[in-house]
Nucleic acid binder design. Structure first.
Lengths: 197, 197
DNA sequence: TCGCTACGAAACGAATACGTTTCGTATCTT
DNA sequence: AAGATACGAAACGTATTCGTTTCGTAGCGA
């Protein structure tokens, strides 16, 4: 009985499996962006992916599991920032990137669906919050170190500052008809941190 | 032919009609907050309101019209602010009020559903955006006048400043597990406008 | 009091989506 | 080349919801 093998990866897994998984996850994200959490239908995902419905149920037990995995795939979009320039320049780069992602990417298209899903399902909510907290860590660290070095004015809470900057971008995407444009990054920094810095 | 009467209100409309309308709209808001835009079901609204389904269809042609009317009713929640105190105190009062509404009220409970609905339906989206823009006008005016009077530091865009403040509260509600508390209002003002003001 | 009408309950057919199952085919590993 | 298996297509029964309709009742205005 080759019990030990159970803990090793199969030497040559059938490539059809992983390919199906990726095609289906991409289709699921497209579906979430197109019709939202409430309108999400497995049959539409199958059609979108050019796949039989049975193939989806072969890989995921139900709709929620598929949605959770699709959200997980959004994390691959993460595209962190450079390491050169003044703190102000780095921060502007981050904000421009966030604006790009929130407005245009699969993440941005799925954002309302993610918010709705997080509101309805506790497991998705935990993931949603953790993901967002993780994504903001570099920004908070940058602000904290810039305050410590005197590049940014003292007396501000780095985390709250980051949330004010990032929050503005999300607010514009979700609550107004004028999404935040990368060109406004400098103005936003001036507004929140002051232009005299 | 009493044509002119067409333009006047019926002298004594059946009170059952308006009563049904209000009960149903309140139930619709509760339903939106509880199950969201996608899960919204007319039959559940009827049960929640203690009303026959036919009564709902007697007053609204379909689901979307009912949802739109329910959103319109949220506007009644508006509870503007006082006129006394320093600009800083007024602003803190506004932010505390926004925090209350966004976290606790029917509006706050329906917020994810509204965002999702606005994403899917152009008419609801226009209403959603206009409502939000309208709600922010007093805040923007306050900031603008405080900047003009020298109470707030110059060089900031009042609208963007207001969006940074309000946006932080919405961001905390929608994207984190730590909703904004009224006690943080002063810290938020310090962070965005500087504590030296 | 009398006629009118808004009402609640219930049943309806159509449509949609879930999750399952079957079956023949195409593609993988060995 | 041969056996194993992941696949797509299709059909299935169940459940849910839509929006409609019918009907008897209760509350309204006059």
């Amino acid at each position: 009985m080759p019990t030990a093998l159970k803990h090793t990866v199969d030497p040559r897994p059938d490539p059809r499996i992983e390919r199906s998984r990726q095609v289906i996850l991409a289709a699921a994200l497209a579906e979430l962006g197109a019709v939202g959490y409430g309108g999400f239908a497995i049959e539409s995902v199958a059609a979108r992916a050019g796949v039989g419905k049975s193939t989806i149920y072969r890989h995921w037990p139900d709709k929620l599991a598929l949605i959770a995995d699709a959200f997980r795939k959004l994390q691959d979009e993460r595209d962190p920032e450079l390491e050169t320039g003044t703190p102000r320049e780095k921060l502007a780069r981050i904000l421009r990137h966030v604006a790009d992602v929130v407005v245009d990417s699969p993440f941005g298209k799925c954002l309302p669906a993610m918010i709705e899903a997080a509101e309805r399902d506790p497991a998705l909510r935990r993931y949603h919050h953790r993901f967002q907290a993780e994504a903001n860590k570099p920004t908070i660290a940058l602000i904290a170190s810039a305050i410590a070095s005197g590049d940014f004015p003292a007396g501000r809470d780095p985390k709250l500052t980051a949330q004010a900057l990032i929050g503005t971008i999300f607010y514009r995407r979700l609550m107004t008809d004028a999404p935040f444009t990368p060109a406004e990054a400098v103005a936003l920094i001036d507004t929140v941190l002051g232009s005299e810095v």
